[in-house]
């Protein structure tokens, strides 16, 4: 039996990330949502200095990384099926006052995604530590499998957040905006790049005026079953020559939590997050890529294994075309 069933997969010589220029947040940051800006303050917006009593003792950060190890395709009878060997890892970091920050045990998944609704028949085992599960996407475009890996990572993140939120008594901060599947309660979305402001020009004008540790008033984003409170906060002063909107992030929490708890969370993040913002010498995505998140990403990438080594194993398997551990 062949490892890929009836498929004659060949390595796509293109660099794996070629054509992957899409920005995840662009995909996720929908437009045209309902916005209400008068939920916390009525009238003109002004910077809010958080109440010191809002200090929180426990934070958890959840993030994921994903990678296409090898792109493949099956070209037969003039019909092309695009595919990808993809790896993803999701994990968390817990910060508690007076304790060393610690990693939660991460989850690693490896997928062999085929586009056009196709799927290999069984797990492809390459070595004891390297096995890819069959996965499928209806998308027939060349980047379809890449998007599928991305979505798989988001799903894994969502379930990781859920798992962590159930057993963690503190604030859980998820990388990126909340999704419909995000758990309710003290789970916050963390949007690093302000590509959409959602609020009008008058409200936007308050963002450059925020001092480090201040936040904007709350506003409501979305409606009905998926409405959340959101706010902007400043992590650091803008870099010399940088946009006055830089060094700020937007955060959100499901509106079911209620206005007062949401204000409390907004204050707590405005107080805590600037201390976690790295300097620019450290990370090109500073200050938004907070210390715990940056460290977590590095930690997760190590768990994915060395990309060149993984790629060589996969290419070797395809090149030999031999049976290797298929069931």
């Amino acid at each position: 039996m062949r490892p890929f069933g009836d498929f004659d997969l060949r390595v796509d010589a293109w660099d794996v990330e070629y054509g992957a220029g899409m920005n995840v947040e662009e995909i996720e940051q929908a437009t045209g949502l309902d916005v209400k800006t008068d939920v916390e303050v009525s009238g003109r917006w002004h910077p809010i200095t958080p109440s010191p009593t809002a200090r929180a003792r426990r934070f958890a950060f959840v993030d994921g990384v994903r990678r296409v190890d090898v792109r493949v395709h099956d070209v037969r009878a003039g019909k092309v099926v695009y595919g990808a060997f993809g790896s993803l890892a999701v994990g968390g970091v817990v910060l508690e006052d007076g304790e060393p920050a610690r990693f939660e045990e991460p989850v690693v998944e490896r997928l062999l995604v085929l586009g056009s609704g196709q799927r290999v028949p069984a797990t492809v085992t390459i070595t004891d530590a390297l096995a890819y599960e069959p996965h499928s996407t209806d998308n027939s475009e060349a980047d379809g499998p890449l998007t599928a890996v991305q979505h798989a990572m988001l799903r894994a993140e969502a379930s990781y957040v859920k798992w962590l939120a159930e057993r963690f008594d503190g604030i859980v901060i998820e990388d990126g905006p909340l999704t419909y599947d995000s758990p309710r309660g003290q789970v916050l979305g963390y949007v690093k790049r302000l590509l959409r402001f959602h609020v009008g020009p008058d409200e936007q004008a308050v963002i450059p005026r925020l001092a480090v540790g201040q936040r904007s008033p709350l506003f409501v984003l979305g409606s009905n079953a998926f409405a959340r409170y959101s706010w902007f906060l400043r992590l650091a002063d803008p870099a010399p020559g940088g946009s006055p909107f830089s060094a700020c992030v937007r955060m959100e929490v499901d509106d079911s939590i209620g206005l007062e708890p949401a204000r409390h969370l907004a204050d707590a993040t405005a107080l805590a997050l600037p201390a976690l913002a790295p300097g620019r010498h450290r990370d090109p995505r500073a200050p938004q890529n907070l210390y715990p998140i940056g460290a977590l990403e590095g930690h997760l990438r190590r768990r994915l294994g060395d990309q060149r080594l993984v790629r060589r194993h996969i290419e070797g398997l395809i090149a030999r075309g031999v049976d290797r551990g298929t069931s």
Binding site: V93, L95, E96, D97, G98, E99, P100, A101, R102, F103, A275, L276, R282, Y291, P292, A295, L296, G298, H299, R302
Partner: peptide, 20 residues
């Protein structure tokens, strides 16, 4: 492990940077 700079020791001690 996972620390890039000497000053990361202070971050780790503060509890803001997770390290192994």
């Amino acid at each position: 492990e996972g620390a890039q700079f000497d000053s990361d020791a202070f971050r780790a001690r503060e509890g803001t940077l997770p390290v192994d």
